[in-house]
Simulated assay, not measured.
Amino acid sequence: MRILLWHVHGSWTTAFVQGPHTYLVPVTPDRGPDGLGRAATFDWPESVVELPPEELRDTDVDLLVLQRPHEIGLAREWLGRRPGVDVPTVYLEHNAPGGPVPDTRHPAADRRDLTIVHVTHFNRLMWDCGTTPTAVIEHGIVDPGPLWTGRLERAAVVVNEPLRRGRTTGTDLLPYLSEAAPLDVFGMGTEGIAARLGLPEDRCRGRELVQSALHHALAERRVYLHPVRWTSLGLSLLEAMHLGMPVVALATTEACEAVPPGAGVLSNRPDVLHDAVRGFVAEPELARETGRAARTAALARYGLPRFLDDWDRLIKEVTR
């Protein structure tokens, strides 16, 4: 099977391309958003093939995976084929709706010629997809292994652009939560976060690391903190659980499904999150036991084999 998709979400795509197919990714000379090509910081197999736009018209494509609204027009232009009509198509929706929930219309709503695939049941519930067929394929994670040591009495947070995204990612909660334990905030746009939040550097540090280094850095921290108010289901939360980290998270969107009892602490009360972070930092054995439970739960629900099997079943349905 030859599957065409744009390189949009590096972590998700890393799991998707572990399947048995050939994955075609557009590449442009500037490697801009519509032509990133192969990942530079993720480990992708040789079955991921870069193709410039001018070669796509003459390329056999068995399935088109769209991820952004403008890719519908881009596919028509570059392929010379109509998504859903001339080539089987799914629209992969990574995000929870950003408009007036729950009335936000999906950009691919009321299209019987394609399928919208959501990454969480929460997202499918909240998006108004009209008459478009929908499915849910939950995330799968390439297992980084049980790397947690927790040797540093600090909490890890992973979020891109926390200052720009503000309340959406719970950035406003960080000053209070940093009183429970020093925070290391990993992700793009985290430089200077301590000064912007009015915190001493030793209480909140921002760092940007490539994926291979990020897992080891997270695993050194005692606990993983997920203060995000509104998002889909952060892959970093699932990766932390795979690492064997205890997790503390807001009980919003899909987090309640992802983190079962015993694998961490979920609450919409900042004081409960504060006390949970402090407790895990103070009690390394509790952190270890909780992290083991988190890893067991994550492997069972978000393991790579289940993810790839689910996608293969859907691919067969939409291409038959």
Rank of each mutant, 00 (worst) to 15 (best):
D34M: 13
A294L: 01
L197E: 04
N268Y: 10
H106M: 09
P33A: 10
G291H: 03
R124K: 04
P69D: 11
E254H: 03
L266Q: 05
V185S: 10
P45S: 09
E254D: 14
H118S: 10
H139R: 11
E285T: 12
E254T: 09
P175C: 11
R82V: 04
A276T: 10
L163W: 00
P45C: 02
D309I: 15
P200E: 08
H9L: 05
V25T: 00
T28S: 04
T168F: 02
L299A: 05
S47I: 08
G244T: 02
T104W: 01
G303D: 06
H121K: 08
T169M: 01
L79V: 14
Y23H: 10
N95T: 15
R269M: 10
A276V: 13
T168Y: 00
H70L: 01
N123W: 02
I116Y: 07
V8D: 14
V85K: 00
A298V: 08
R229W: 12
A249C: 14
E289F: 02
G187P: 15
M241F: 03
P284Q: 10
A293F: 00
A155V: 05
Y91C: 11
P45V: 05
A263I: 01
M188G: 14
V158Y: 03
R292W: 09
E289V: 13
L250H: 10
L63A: 14
T231H: 13
C129F: 12
H216K: 12
G150V: 02
Q18D: 05
G150R: 09
E71L: 00
A195T: 03
R313H: 15
A298D: 02
M241G: 07
V119K: 09
R124W: 00
T14S: 14
A109Y: 14
